[in-house]
Design a protein around this nucleic acid. Structure first.
Lengths: 342, 342
DNA sequence: ATGCGAAGCCAAAGCGCTTTGAATGCCGGT
DNA sequence: ACCGGCATTCAAAGCGCTTTGGCTTCGCAT
C-alpha cells in the first residue's frame, strides 16, 4: 500500500493525503480524519526511502564507532546504549553505527554527512579540542557530545557529569578522614573526563595545602589489569598512599586484588573510592568490602542523550546548551580514617 | 556532484555512466575507464538514498536491540560489536540498531522488512525454536544467527561455538582429576548456549556414571552477584561440590568472592573452570588464582558474522550453512586434584 | 454587482538513482 | 546490395514520497 493507491482509494490527490498525514494546516479537518482513518485501517506506512530522497531526512541518528584490531570498545558503551535505545524505541528512532578506523574518523564523518545518512550524531569519549567536534561544527551536522571537549571558542551542545566536582568531593572526604597521601588511578589521560577528575583531586588537595605527586597518579585504559598494576606501583612505592581514588569499578577490581596480594586490608590500611557508572553485572556493594563510589548512571545519560537529540530534530531544542549532571557520593565500608602514624 | 552533472560533463547519458560505474558488461572498456576516472577525480559518490529508492538495497545490516528498563544489554555485545565493526569497516558497511521492546520484537522485525531498512540482519542470544528465526525465515529477510536455535525442521545459517563439547571436555578433565561432585553455574537457562553447556556437563558425568543433581546447577543472568549467590548456595549445601564450572568470567568473580568468604581456597578446596569470551578488560590469568577457561573469542565471531553477512549480500554465500567453532580449553592454576577424602 | 483573501484541493515537478526498451552504427554473411 | 546480429549508447520511465505553484470556491466587504 503506497501513497498513490491510498490517495486513489480516497479519491484525493497525493498532495492532500500526504499533507493530511503530515499534519499540514491547509487541509480540512474532516478530510484529515478520513485520511488518517483510512491510512490506519489499511496499515499504510510511508516508504522511508522515498521520504528520505524527497526530504533528506532519515529518521536515524548516527554514531561513528572507532574500530581497529587494537581498539577495544568500552564496556560502558553498551550500558549507554541501553539507555539510548530504551528511549529511542518509543520514537521508532534507529541508530546507525558507522565503523571507522579509530585513527581516521574524519572521512567517515564526511561520508555520513555527504550521504545524508543520519539526521544527527552523538559523540562520546571526547578529548580537549576534539577534532570531531570541530569537524561537525563546520560540517553543520547536528550533534550532541556525551562528555565535554574543552578549549573551543564556540559553544556546542553536550551532556556531561560533574567529574571534577565528584572527585573533588571524594578527595575532600578522604582528607577529612585524615588521609594525607592520596593516589589517583585514572582513565586515559587524553580524555576529558580523566583530566577533569584529576583536576578535582588536585583542587581538593591544594585546598588543604596538599599536593598530588606525579608518581601518585596513573592514567591508563580502564582494565582490571591496569588497575592492579597501578595499585601495586603506588602501594609498593616509598611513600605509599593511605587512600586511593579510582576511575572505574573494573580498575577497582584490580586495586582490590593488589591490596590483597600485598597483605593489606581495606579500609584498615587503605581507603578506596571508585567511580561507578552503574552496571547491572558488577555492583560496588558486592565487593568483598563494599565500595564507596561516586555514582552516575551512564544509562540514564544515554536516555537523556536520545531525548535531547530527538528534541533537537523536531526543532524543540536549539542552541548549544551544555548540561552537567551532579554526581552522587555513596559512602560504603571501603573508607575509614587514615591509619595511625601515617 | 550527482549523476546528472557527471554524465553531462562526460557527454554521456546517465544510463551509460551508471552502468560503467556499476560494472555492467554492455559498456565499452575505454568509456568505462573515462567514466571511472572522472568519477574519482570529481569525488562522485552515488547518493545512497536515491539508490535505495531505485533498487531497494540499503548497504546496511541490521540488529534488533532488545531494550526495556528491566533489560540489560549484555557486555558481551560490545565485544562482538568490536569484531563486527572491525570487519564491516573495510567494506563501508553500516550497522543499524533498531531498539525494540524485548517482549515485542516481532513488530520491529516486520517494520524493518516492510521498510526495507536493511539488507540483512543478525540475531543473537537465540533460544530453542526462537521465534525470530522462524519469523525471519518466513519474511524472507536474509539473516545470520550468532548462536543456535534448536528444534526447527528447516535449516538456517548460523555461527556458533561448540558449547556442549567445551563443557563436556572441561567436565571430563575435572573427573579425571578425581572430582565427583561437580556443580554448574550457568547462564540464563532459556538460551541455547546454556542448554548446550549443561548438556555437555551431563554427558561427561553420565559417561562416568555420575549425575548432575538439580540443586547443583544454577541458571541465571550472568552477573557477578548471581555468580556469588549460586556459589554460596552450592558450597554451603549438604553436599558441596569440589569443582565448579561457570559460564562466564563475570560470574566467576562472584564465585571467587564466595569461596573467599567461606574461607575456602582455590584450587585446594575447589577447582574452577569458567568460560572466557575474551575481554580486554578482564582476563582469567589475572584472577588471584589464575583461572582455567574454555576460551573462544566472541570478537572473532563478530568479525566472522560480518564476513558471512557480506558474502551473503554479494551472492557469494548462499544456502543455510551452520558453522560451529571448536573451543579452547586453557588450563591454569585454578584446578587441581579433588581434595582427599571427598 | 465586483473584488479579494482565505480555505481547500490538485497536477506536476522534483529528489538522484537504476533499468527498460529502443536507437544507432558497424560487421560479416549471403 | 541487403540483412541479421552484435556492440554501444541513449531517452525516458519508474522508485514513492514532498512540495511548489495554481486553481476553485465561498464568504464578505466595497
Amino acid at each position: 500500500m503506497n501513497l498513490k493507491q491510498l490517495s486513489h482509494m480516497l479519491q484525493l490527490s497525493q498532495t492532500t493525503v500526504s499533507r493530511a498525514l503530515n499534519g499540514y494546516p491547509e487541509v480540512n479537518e474532516e478530510t484529515r480524519r478520513r485520511v488518517v482513518d483510512a491510512a490506519k485501517r489499511h496499515g499504510y506506512r510511508p516508504n522511508p526511502s522515498a521520504r528520505r530522497l524527497a526530504t533528506g531526512k532519515t529518521g536515524m541518528i548516527g554514531y561513528v564507532l572507532p574500530t581497529g584490531s587494537a581498539v577495544d570498545i568500552d564496556p560502558h558503551f553498551v550500558e549507554f546504549l541501553s539507555g539510548l535505545g530504551d528511549y529511542a524505541r518509543a520514537h521508532e528512532l534507529d541508530l546507525v553505527l558507522s565503523p571507522a578506523d579509530a585513527e581516521e574518523q574524519e572521512t567517515t564523518y564526511r561520508r555520513i554527512v555527504a550521504n545524508k545518512q543520519v539526521d544527527a550524531v552523538y559523540v562520546s569519549s571526547p578529548r580537549p579540542q576534539d577534532s570531531r567536534v570541530a569537524l561537525l561544527d563546520t560540517l553543520g551536522l547536528p550533534f550532541l557530545v556525551h562528555g565535554r571537549s574543552d578549549g573551543f571558542d564556540f559553544d556546542y551542545p553536550y551532556l556531561d557529569i560533574d567529574n571534577e566536582g565528584a572527585f573533588q568531593e571524594a578527595t575532600r572526604l578522604m582528607i577529612q578522614l585524615g588521609h594525607r597521601r592520596i593516589a589517583l588511578i585514572n582513565g586515559d589521560e587524553r580524555e576529558t573526563f580523566a583530566i577533569h577528575r584529576e583536576r578535582g583531586v588536585r583542587r581538593a588537595l591544594a585546598g588543604n595545602g596538599l599536593a598530588l605527586p606525579d608518581d601518585q597518579v596513573s592514567s591508563t585504559v580502564m582494565t582490571e589489569e591496569n588497575g592492579y598494576r597501578a595499585a601495586r606501583r603506588v602501594l609498593e612505592g616509598s611513600s605509599a598512599p593511605t587512600a586511593i581514588l579510582c576511575s572505574s569499578l573494573i580498575m577497582a577490581l584490580g586495586v582490590v586484588r593488589a591490596v590483597r596480594e600485598l597483605g593489606l586490608t581495606i579500609p584498615g590500611d587503605l581507603s578506596l573510592i571508585a567511580h561507578d557508572d552503574v552496571f547491572s553485572w558488577l555492583k560496588p556493594e558486592n565487593f568483598s568490602v563494599p565500595l564507596s563510589t561516586t555514582r552516575s548512571s551512564i544509562r540514564a545519560a544515554g536516555a537523556r542523550v536520545a531525548e535531547r537529540l530527538i528534541a533537537r530534530l523536531s526543532g524543540l531544542e536549539d542552541g548549544a546548551r551544555g548540561e552537567v549532571w551532579p554526581v552522587d557520593l555513596v559512602v560504603r565500608a571501603s573508607i575509614a580514617g587514615a591509619p595511625a602514624g601515617s
